[in-house]
């Protein structure tokens, strides 16, 4: 297996409380990895350590390593913004920036000076809106505020915004939980389309979504990693008792 992210001896604390206990895991390249588990098991916390969002919460502490392409992103001389450029995040609730639809997508490109002139920005914005499956719906109203879009559209806009900085990894923190079924489906099919080019890590609370998306599965419980492996194996033949119970819907 070609690992894109490697987690080594990772412990995470909120204040004194241990939220992640000695996590060791490798996340395969260009596949969809789904992290699942009951609420409060630390799955979102784990995800947030991959783009160094965990440290945005005050009074947190972290030990261990997270390696992206073999480089520890918690090294002292690492540039957080470079990490976050490579590791994009699709949040739980769509959070369009308070600017136009166009500027939302162009935002990250401008920050990183990824284009040279106006024309290039235009084609860039169009490109990523197409990938996110939003272009046809918004091509006539690019200068309208992003908040005028429906929630489902907003989430696809956030996807386009994230892709526009050319990441290699997409993190999704329950990215469909705020959406209606049709919008959810839309996002899911985008993610399936994109997995050839991007390593994707999704946190989900619904088992069915996990089954639809996952190539690789991580099961967590109370801050510990219980089981990880290719989706087919874990779903059909879980090795651990807890995983079995979870898959059977016992908790």
């Amino acid at each position: 297996m070609d690992a894109h992210i490697q987690v080594k001896n990772l412990n995470a604390y909120y204040g004194k409380q241990l939220a992640l206990k000695n996590i060791n895991i490798e996340i395969p390249k260009n596949q969809i990895t789904v992290i699942m588990g009951p609420s409060g098991c630390g799955k979102t916390t784990l995800l947030k350590t991959f783009n160094r969002f965990f440290e945005l919460t005050e009074n947190t502490q972290l030990t261990g390593e997270v390696l992206v392409d073999g480089e520890n992103i918690y090294n002292k001389d690492v540039d957080v913004t470079e990490v976050r450029k490579v590791v994009g995040l699709l949040a739980q609730r769509p959070s369009p920036l308070p600017m136009s639809i166009y500027d939302n997508v162009a935002y990250g490109m401008r920050i990183h000076h990824l284009r040279k002139n106006r024309e290039e920005y235009k084609t860039g914005v169009k490109h990523y809106l197409e990938i996110a499956g939003l272009w046809d719906e918004v091509c006539k109203r690019l200068s309208e505020p992003a908040t005028s879009l429906s929630i489902g559209q907003q989430q696809r806009l956030c996807l386009a915004r994230g892709l526009a900085v050319e990441p290699e990894i997409i993190l999704g923190d329950e990215p469909t939980s705020a959406l209606d079924p049709i919008s959810s489906q839309n996002i899911e099919s985008r993610l399936l389309e994109l997995k050839k080019q991007y390593t994707t890590v999704i946190v989900t609370h619904t088992l069915r979504q996990a089954k639809r998306l996952a190539d690789y599965v991580i099961f967590m419980y109370l801050g510990e990693l219980i089981e990880a492996g290719p989706a087919k194996e874990v779903f059909s033949n879980p090795k651990h008792e807890r995983t079995k119970q979870y898959l059977e819907g016992l908790f």
Binding site: L56, T81, G88, A91, S95, L97, Y107, G108, R161, V165
Partner: peptide, 15 residues
């Protein structure tokens, strides 16, 4: 300002 907004910007690698 909700933190979600800050995170949206930080998330694409803004300082």
């Amino acid at each position: 300002v909700p933190n979600d907004l800050r995170h949206a910007s930080l998330g694409v690698g803004a300082t």
